[in-house]
Design a protein around this nucleic acid. Structure first.
Lengths: 219, 219
DNA sequence: TACTAATATATTACATACATAAAAATATTG
DNA sequence: CAATATTTTTATGTATGTAATATATTAGTA
């Protein structure tokens, strides 16, 4: 019998193409509504179409792009229902995360979260909204990371990607950032003090508010 | 600007290959620990390696198989940690589902669930364990389906697939089936009567028990 | 001009070819 | 014979070729 599984080497061209394309999408280089094609991307990356296609298939399975048969590819255009679905899923997982963390995590583990709160405040003071988005992402992924559940981590990462594709603006609406920090603070406090029910409720409230912000900013 | 997205046509060879391979895995035709290869599968399906590879990449992204670089493919071998992760995720989503259903669904919508309960009893009486597994799957997916959340549905479907790959046996352990039905009954009753908290708790209990059954039967 | 039919173009979806790495088989050497 | 080096085999990972199809363009006609 063969021995233990090795993972598909991360230095494969397909993997590299995936990372490169994902980054170019997340950094806002892809225009919504615009058609793209495998050949141009492959030429751009200096590789053949095959690994590019594999990367695109993965991005499509993550709902970031969609294949238009015989036409090309485009960024996924999320509608109101998509937003509802995505935030409902997000709520289920992030509530479960804070519940678990509030129950089990020792204080030192919560340092990364407290750190991200500082970064959020600093970013708002300096009006550096890219930094704010990053710190916000760190706040949320810190909880998931503490669950030590790789599947939940991946899903939350993917959700963040989708929200970023929906439009970075929503997260950085002037007035919203300040409220976000207050909401985060409430969640963090409840978790730190082990108040499970409160932590769940604050997270629910926060995600509901965020969803509204997304819906208002676009769509 | 291009018009609305069409979805990658489901009659593509890659799609067909995906369905065919997934079915052959779920029906127990793949041996755990055995190496498979793209060429043989392609020959078997009478198509080229390309669409087969795309199908396999999707199955790998769903954690059903793993690529062993330059060696071939095998069924994923789940360990205890995987089981913990999968059931934790499953609990988060299925609890959220019953919560939503208990809050919002009108009685007629619950018919599919009640129906599956009947099928479960019938299957146990007839000692038809394949039928039982099917009815069990229907019970759980009915809740997710009622959420109308395509993302949560996909995740739960994928989780069922993974559990099936872990070994069909766990679900059909002689004594377990009877208890499963009791647990299902308790969940259903709570949902029907709109007892949100109870529904969540019964679902949690049921999934914990199921996880133990899986762990005991293998690994 | 407005509308339809024919043709051209672009791009995939799939097939095939090739290069390379890992394993297995074989040969070689002390 | 045991251990190591070499060759062969096998399967992937990547590149390239090809036919089909969705759309755009052009030509033709009332």
């Amino acid at each position: 019998m063969p021995k233990l599984a090795t993972i598909k080497q991360p230095e494969s061209l397909a993997r590299m193409a995936y990372e490169a394309i994902r980054q170019s999408i997340l950094s806002g280089q892809w225009q919504i509504g615009e058609l793209y094609n495998e050949k141009a991307i492959a030429a751009d990356l200096g590789i053949s179409r095959t690994p590019v296609r594999e990367a695109l298939l993965e991005l499509a399975s993550q709902d970031l792009i969609i294949f238009m048969p015989r036409r090309g590819l485009m960024l996924n255009r999320f509608n109101l229902r998509d937003v509802d679905e995505i935030f409902e899923l997000r709520k289920a997982i992030e509530q479960a995360s804070v519940e678990k963390i509030a129950n089990t995590s020792p204080l030192p583990d919560l340092l990364a979260i407290e750190e991200s709160l500082l970064e959020q405040r600093k970013a708002v003071n300096q009006k550096d909204y890219m930094a704010f988005i990053e710190a916000d992402r760190k706040f949320h992924t810190s909880f998931t990371t503490l669950t030590n559940n790789s599947r939940m981590i991946s899903i939350v990462e993917n959700i963040r990607d989708m929200i970023q594709v929906m439009g970075i603006k929503a997260l950085s609406l002037e007035g919203r950032a300040v409220k976000v920090i207050e909401e985060h603070q409430a969640i963090f406090k409840a978790v730190k003090e082990g108040h499970v029910k409160k932590a769940r409720n604050f997270m629910a409230y926060h995600l509901d508010q965020s969803m509204e912000a997304v819906k208002e900013s676009e769509l």
